[in-house]
Computed example of a mutant assay.
Amino acid sequence: MSNYNSLTDNELLILIQAGDRRAFEEIYERFNGLLYIYACKLVSEREDAKDIVQEIFVYLWSNPDIKIKSQLSAYLYTAVRYKVFDWLDKNKSKSNYLLSLKNFAELGDCITDDYIREKEFASIIEKEISLLPPKMRQIFEMSRQQHLSQKEIAEILHLSDKTVKKQMSNALKVLRLKLTSFISIAIILFVR
């Protein structure tokens, strides 16, 4: 395979897990600079930030059996954050840096982190919508994506207004139930 830059992160990850060095180099090229910038915002010394990022890539390459349940980018940014906490413990300057990290988070400079979470949440919502029963999903998508009224949907699908209303209500209940647990977990993980 010669054109690695056209592959998705997850396709490259599968190749990395099979021992493909070029796939690893492509992931390194995609994320090294971004992760370094992110790490520099979390620690004061650039060399420390560089070491933290290098440790993440060494771990990724040397652990082919690693299970990543989210997007690779989200995993890498989270790994940097946790590696920073490890680094803080080892360097016994935890309180100063944690205060700095807290200030950093409060100032809202976690734009990259927020963007990744937003993309992941949108992906989860899309997945849950795709799991709705076909007719319910169709009605929900016509309402939310095509911005059609219940009356318009009923006319197009030759259904009663009541049926459309009930299907929308059921779709929202299902999504609310599934997404509430995700939101609770996300709040616990990301608002520390």
Results as ranks from 00 to 15, higher is better:
residue 28 Y to K: 03
residue 105 A to I: 14
residue 94 K to S: 08
residue 77 Y to S: 00
residue 18 A to W: 04
residue 16 I to W: 00
residue 74 A to T: 14
residue 30 R to N: 01
residue 103 N to I: 03
residue 137 R to V: 06
residue 79 A to F: 11
residue 191 V to K: 09
residue 122 A to Y: 09
residue 72 L to C: 04
residue 191 V to T: 11
residue 1 M to N: 06
residue 74 A to Y: 02
residue 174 V to R: 12
residue 174 V to S: 10
residue 3 N to Q: 11
residue 135 K to V: 14
residue 68 I to E: 01
residue 162 K to E: 15
residue 49 A to H: 04
residue 85 F to Q: 09
residue 167 Q to A: 10
residue 38 Y to D: 10
residue 42 L to N: 00
residue 18 A to F: 08
residue 105 A to L: 12
residue 54 Q to R: 05
residue 6 S to P: 05
residue 54 Q to F: 06
residue 89 D to F: 10
residue 132 L to G: 04
residue 43 V to G: 02
residue 31 F to V: 00
residue 70 S to D: 11
residue 107 L to G: 04
residue 71 Q to D: 15
residue 95 S to H: 13
residue 95 S to C: 07
residue 39 A to F: 03
residue 190 F to P: 00
residue 88 L to C: 06
residue 173 K to Y: 13
residue 90 K to S: 07
residue 61 W to I: 02
residue 35 L to S: 05
residue 111 I to C: 03
residue 154 A to N: 07
residue 61 W to P: 04
residue 88 L to T: 10
residue 112 T to I: 14
residue 43 V to I: 12
residue 116 I to V: 09
residue 42 L to W: 00
residue 82 Y to A: 04
residue 97 Y to N: 10
residue 139 I to N: 07
residue 159 L to G: 03
residue 41 K to M: 08
residue 126 E to T: 10
residue 110 C to V: 02
residue 119 K to I: 12
residue 60 L to H: 00
residue 170 N to E: 13
residue 46 R to P: 12
residue 164 V to G: 06
residue 76 L to D: 04
residue 24 F to G: 00
residue 81 R to L: 13
residue 102 K to V: 13
residue 26 E to V: 01
residue 98 L to K: 14
residue 187 I to T: 09
residue 130 S to E: 13
residue 52 I to K: 01
residue 144 R to M: 13
residue 129 I to S: 06
residue 97 Y to H: 15
residue 101 L to Q: 05
residue 148 L to H: 07
residue 22 R to A: 11
residue 89 D to T: 11
residue 161 D to I: 08
residue 12 L to Y: 07
residue 37 I to P: 01
residue 169 S to H: 14
residue 55 E to W: 01
residue 139 I to P: 02
residue 97 Y to G: 01
residue 140 F to S: 02
residue 159 L to D: 02
residue 172 L to N: 15
residue 171 A to V: 02
residue 65 D to L: 10
residue 12 L to G: 04
residue 181 S to G: 03
residue 82 Y to E: 10
residue 184 S to T: 12
residue 65 D to P: 00
residue 4 Y to A: 01
residue 102 K to E: 11
residue 171 A to I: 06
residue 171 A to L: 03
residue 125 I to G: 07
residue 111 I to W: 10
residue 52 I to T: 05
residue 110 C to N: 07
residue 123 S to I: 00
residue 17 Q to L: 09
residue 11 E to K: 04
residue 103 N to Q: 03
residue 73 S to D: 15
residue 124 I to R: 08
residue 131 L to E: 15
residue 115 Y to I: 08
residue 23 A to F: 03
residue 101 L to Y: 09
residue 185 I to H: 06
residue 186 A to F: 07
residue 11 E to R: 01
residue 54 Q to K: 08
residue 102 K to Q: 04
residue 28 Y to T: 07
residue 87 W to F: 15
residue 80 V to R: 00
residue 44 S to Q: 11
residue 125 I to M: 11
residue 192 R to Y: 11
residue 106 E to A: 02
residue 177 L to F: 11
residue 25 E to T: 14
residue 47 E to Y: 09
residue 12 L to N: 01
residue 145 Q to I: 11
